[in-house]
Design a protein around this nucleic acid. Structure first.
Lengths: 205, 205
DNA sequence: CCTTCATGTGCGCAGTGCTACCACACACGG
DNA sequence: CCGTGTGTGGTAGCACTGCGCACATGAAGG
């Protein structure tokens, strides 16, 4: 009936869920979150409009799967970023976050709205609190080492999150020009103590 | 035909655009941005589904009008906030921003995505750059007065925006519990120099 | 009083998420 | 080797959306 000889082995797809999430990510990058429509995803995977619902309860479930997939990639990305940079790990973490937002603004938008938001999916929440634990440990360690300013780790951590979160958001919103964004972010991070820290800033004795 | 005797003067509504934006804001607060559907807005205003398109080119135009309306209120809110607080105006500005986000998360979401984003509407952009000018002037003035840390005003300003922006976003995302959000925000602001500034923080001599 | 024209109505189109119901293909038990 | 059954995908359809279009209405100006 439909002649897509190379894309389909037969009547059964083989691994439709994977193909669907892949198509969804592609669509996400192209058109943003609202552009990810179930029908279009199915179209790109070469299946009928109803087929995705065999594997995902609803559109939200699809997006959750996509978010989960992206989160894994993101975690790896940040890990590589931390390993390849010297200096404060906090700074590396933050910069990794921001660079990801610059490179994949739509994906960042997705994980922002689904992971950091008060959505329900327990698995994602688990993944997040794991990351958060690592994050807090680093703060305490770097405070002990004198790399980060002292003070309630919760507040210092929250401040760091807020700056990074805010910068990333401003970037994905298009508020900061993408080409200058990274440089500006580094300046902000350094000025406000996520890099050199513990000293008020370059303008004071 | 339709018996809504008290809500309609006659066939002509009188001021449908205003009624529509009002209904849209109401709907926005209840169901969020995606919940603002043209038909439901029309329903609440007591007119036919097609009527809004006489006054707004499309749904986006309606949302832009709503955003503009909200921005005006927001500017007034922030102004009142600055006047009623003593200490750093930067701090007052930031706290005003954050408090607005706490009180009206959906409205904050709207103006974030439409005003701070790289959307086109020139009138909104104008309004924004006005605010930004005031904002920058304050930074320079407070730096001269020694209330804010020295350094490139652009970077200091950007950092302040990022923190406030980030905190607000975390709040509307539900990442911070609403009841503790304001207190946490104040602590972060003070620790990172938007309040007491110019001194590294309360944890140091 | 009659004309004019902005304003709101009614209808229809395309596209969406989602759901029954149907059809096929592969894997299994005989 | 062959039926058969279950999971996987297809089709049709519902309710909803945004958005044009032709038409009706009623308030204002000659």
């Amino acid at each position: 009936m439909k002649d897509k000889p190379t894309e389909r082995a037969g009547y059964h797809h083989g691994d439709l869920p994977a193909a669907l999430t892949a198509a969804a990510i592609e669509l996400l990058d192209e058109r943003g979150m609202d552009g990810v429509t179930v029908r279009e995803v199915a179209r790109r995977a070469g299946v009928s409009p109803g087929a995705p619902f065999r594997h995902f309860a609803d559109r939200q479930a699809l997006l959750t799967a996509v978010a989960d997939r992206i989160l894994v990639d993101f975690a790896q990305w940040q890990l590589g970023m931390v390993e390849s940079m010297d200096g404060s790990m906090m700074r590396a973490f933050g910069l990794g976050f921001i660079r990801f937002a610059i490179r994949h603004p739509r994906r960042f938008e997705l994980i922002r709205s689904r992971v950091f938001g008060s959505s329900q999916p327990a698995e994602l929440h688990q993944r997040l609190s794991d990351i958060e634990q690592v994050y807090t440990d680093i703060i305490v360690a770097e405070q002990k080492a004198g790399v980060l300013r002292p003070g309630d780790p919760a507040i210092v951590g929250l401040a760091g999150q807020a700056i990074v979160y805010g910068l990333s958001q401003m970037i994905t919103d298009g508020y900061l020009p993408p080409d200058r964004a990274e440089q500006l972010a580094e300046q902000v991070l350094d000025t406000f103590g996520l890099g050199i820290a513990n000293s008020p800033g370059p303008g004071e004795p």
